[in-house]
């Protein structure tokens, strides 16, 4: 595994750190359109990170992955979501389950957790430790976004940022076969179709994409 030095390494970290920052911006954003713009920005930073890794490792498949991320994640998916939100007329604010301050605190704790979970690696390979900590932090923040949103569109945004985190992790793995990148792009695509179908159906039935309106259909109540 070639070891990155100095500037090259710093830029890679700046981009990965940038993704964590954008994840935090997603975390407290409570307007749907802004949320969609930030997920596009998230994907754009991912594209840069992938492109940088591709250049560092001289790996063609990573260039392809970066292109895919740019086309699908940074452009197409946000555009479709934007249209969906407009068509369903749900431009109003999203409520978060917990307050913004509390969510941010949780987020900081999760980033700490991501670093600690990967800590055993620090002694063996500091580079790998830092790469994976960043990726895991993005993944965990994405999961946090998913659980703090009551709105189905917000949950999708969370899911997409989890996907981006995965891709960041895969990019750091030198020579990891293209299979993974492909499958991630594939999953995002299929997910979009599923989302499209479900969102319109949920909306048709409930006049809202607030998933809490679904709660009364749970079967556990006696």
């Amino acid at each position: 595994m070639p070891v990155a030095h100095g500037l090259a390494f710093d830029v890679a970290h700046m981009l990965a750190g940038g993704m964590v920052t954008v994840s935090f911006m997603l975390l407290f954003q409570d307007r749907l359109f802004a949320l969609i713009q930030f997920i596009a920005l998230h994907a754009l930073v991912l594209t840069l990170a992938l492109g940088w890794q591709a250049w560092l490792q001289d790996a063609e498949h990573l260039y392809a992955a970066a292109a895919l991320a740019l086309v699908f994640k940074a452009t197409l998916i946000p555009w479709v979501l934007h249209r969906l939100v407009r068509r369903l007329r749900i431009e109003r604010a999203v409520e978060t389950v917990v307050g913004a301050g509390m969510t941010m605190l949780f987020g900081i704790c999760l980033v700490g957790l991501a670093v600690v979970v990967m800590l055993p690696l620090a002694a063996k390979s500091p580079l790998m430790w830092e790469d994976l900590s960043f990726a895991l932090a993005v993944v965990m923040l994405g999961l946090l976004i998913m659980i703090t949103r009551r709105n189905a569109v917000g949950q999708i945004i969370g899911f997409l940022s989890v996907d981006n985190g995965m891709m960041l992790a895969a990019a750091g793995a030198h020579g990891m076969p293209f299979l993974i990148d492909l499958s991630i792009a594939f999953s995002a695509l299929v997910a979009l179709i599923v989302f499209g179908i479900f969102l319109s159906h949920i909306f048709k039935h409930f006049d809202s994409v607030d998933v809490h309106t679904l709660d009364r259909f749970r079967g556990d109540q006696p």
Partner: peptide
């Protein structure tokens, strides 16, 4: 009810899928 079940399955399923992929990496 079916839509709610499918949505829940999808969201929890993708969390599972994400964790499993991280493990695979």
């Amino acid at each position: 009810a079916a839509l709610e079940a499918a949505w829940k399955y999808f969201i929890l399923g993708s969390v599972g899928v994400a964790l499993a992929l991280f493990g695979t990496i």
